[in-house]
Write a protein that binds this DNA or RNA. Structure first.
Lengths: 139, 139
DNA sequence: TATTAACCTACTTTGTCAATAGGAATAAAA
DNA sequence: TTTTATTCCTATTGACAAAGTAGGTTAATA
């Protein structure tokens, strides 16, 4: 299991906004009820989305959250990486990792590199828009 | 990060056996030195490989471990699932999981199903033999 | 009978996940 | 101006798993 609640909740929050925001700010509580996610925990998730520049926030009465861009602009891969960190299947592939001393003759490295690529390529091809309304994703 | 040391060490152990066993039983200590993995921890990993029927073990002097089948017979996916459990990217896809009540209108489920499929298909196409000697895996 | 090696049980340490608790700051409405 | 609705902030908790250590028991061979 590689995707934690943070990544999953973040996507659900963004989809919910895309589908319900219209022209207003949507309060977190509203999403929390629709998505059946604890308000308090969702706060933590959303804080990172704001900090990452994906959402605009507005405080006080009538406040809430709003997408900063059109749904087509949100790459699924980018959202998940913001929440989860690198999505590599093994630690030695994480960016900024100094090459493992065994990497030269490592028999398994190519396997992990290939796996990393299929995951990365898959997630990079979708945007938030693909998750909205009737699904455009087929397995 | 989705593949733990158990899965990674297990593959390295199996590859090491495939490349060095010849016609004898290979003691764990020997692999542990070559692979630079703690003997004690490797014991835990190997125990599961034996229990899973992948290895034959022989005790006492001259003992050690040996592959039960030809390297082509070991599916990478099967080995990893033995060590890690289900490789699904999210919990709701694990086998034996009762369908989540939200699954009907879930906007993210198709995404996870698709991701699960690319991971599963990728890992299912390789065997231990593909990891041995010069790599036959390209990314 | 000494040696080598697998097997077994228990423990430890460290870190992350998934929250919860309680309030402070801010904006709008009454 | 006071109430209400909302985001924002810091701290804490409980459960669990990952990764590894420690110390001994059983079995096969020379």
């Amino acid at each position: 299991m590689m995707i934690s609640t943070k990544g999953r909740y973040a996507l659900r929050f963004l989809v919910d906004l895309a589908e319900h925001q219209g022209d207003r700010f949507v309060p977190l509580k509203e999403v929390s009820i629709r998505q059946e996610i604890s308000e308090k925990y969702l706060e933590i998730v959303v804080k990172e989305l704001v900090k990452g520049g994906l959402l605009a926030a507005m405080r006080g009465k009538g406040g809430g959250y709003r997408l900063n861009c059109a749904p087509e602009e949100y790459s699924i891969k980018a959202v998940l990486e913001l929440m989860e960190g690198p999505l590599t299947p093994v630690a030695c592939l994480e960016p900024g990792q100094d090459a493992c001393p065994r990497s030269n003759g490592c028999r398994t490295l190519p396997l992990w590199q290939g796996l990393d690529k299929v995951i990365s390529d898959y997630l990079a091809q979708f945007t938030l828009a693909d998750l909205c309304g009737k699904t455009k994703i087929s397995s």
